[in-house]
Design a protein around this nucleic acid. Structure first.
Lengths: 196, 196
DNA sequence: CATGTCACGTACTATTTAGTATGTAATTCA
DNA sequence: TGAATTACATACTAAATAGTACGTGACATG
């Protein structure tokens, strides 16, 4: 990676840290620059404006995190009912305080920016479409190999799983207890079991 | 209602309109004043500061809306499995474009402000506690009268319902389609049916 | 070796922000 | 009716904001 590419990455990574904790609008460009050794000239050389930087941050920082943790592990799943549960449970097992305190980065950005900016809206819709689509595809493979009941509506089930997960991460901000996550996993498992 | 009380209400109601659409931090005090016939002197006479106004808005505008639509109808429910579904379905039936476009006011405020302000955190936790508690109480009555299976963990079920609802409202911002809500209701009904 | 482009660095601006200082009508109450 | 308190109105400030103008050293390329 060249020097310029490093500068760009530095901006995006620090922007993620701050935006994840405070929100996009509450994080100023100066705020990001203060916490890096990057100057304003460099910032506006690499990005058109603040919105452009934010959208790239979603695409290049937030999306890969979600992909690695929750999407990729399901891409080849032949036993979705068990794998979906395992993937989510495993994510919470590895989660630190920040992860629980500040919610899901994707969901945070949707809440704040989807209604305000078309560019954000599109980037965020791509992420959720990909995730939901991956779950749906896994459920369909499960239907073919017999691990998932053929009568289930894979689209609405995939949606329900994503929706419940994002709701959990959102309300997790207010409850911040292990029990809250445990309770969720209990009900998620029960719900998934009904799909067999 | 006296004249001063009307001024106060005017501020809170307009604050709700703007904050619901743009977020708390993106809505300035001047912004609220521009859209009312209220001056800065009046604003800071009625509220300590912007945060104080925001918290009162949560308590006095957002909470009553959620209470009327989703909490009160369940307070005397003796058939929670059917009533919970009906109440949520009914809410979406009556929902306008704004409601779907801008998500759930409570959830929006949680996402933006719960990690940033203790006063917001507390006010928002009270709302969700009340809602979840009401659902749990209804489920317990259902267990007593036989409409709900006695083996179900009412706390985690109540939590799962709230969580899935809030996730839906959050992701609804990005999907904005009737189908998305229909799919949710389908899975919610299926999930609730397993509690019988 | 001259020259253009890349990748910044510095200094600035116009606007917006929450909040304050200080007034002054309108009520209330003794 | 006089005095105090309520409920505002107006004008201001200091800080923060996104973005710009303009410079400059490094480096590639003909």
């Amino acid at each position: 990676m060249g020097k310029a590419a490093i500068t760009r990455k530095t901006i995006l990574n620090k922007a993620f840290d701050l935006i994840y904790q405070k929100g996009y609008q509450a994080t100023s460009v100066d705020n990001i620059l203060d916490q890096t050794h990057v100057t304003k000239g460099a910032f506006y050389y690499h990005f058109e404006n603040k919105e452009d930087m934010g959208v790239r941050m979603v695409e290049e920082v937030i999306y890969p995190k979600l992909y690695d943790a929750l999407i990729m592990p399901l891409e080849d799943s032949e036993d979705p009912i068990n794998d979906i549960f395992k993937v989510i449970m495993n994510f919470f097992k590895l989660a630190d305080y920040q992860t629980i305190m500040y919610g899901c980065p994707t969901s945070n950005m949707i809440q704040e920016m989807a209604p305000l900016s078309d560019r954000f809206h599109e980037a965020l819709k791509n992420i959720t479409d990909t995730w939901q689509g991956t779950i749906e595809a896994a459920l369909k493979r499960g239907q073919e190999n017999g691990t998932v009941n053929r009568t289930v509506d894979t689209e609405s089930v995939a949606q329900f799983i994503v929706v419940s997960y994002e709701g959990l991460r959102s309300l997790g901000k207010v409850y911040q207890s292990k029990l809250y996550y445990k309770n969720y996993l209990k009900q998620l498992r029960a719900y998934l079991a009904t799909l067999q």
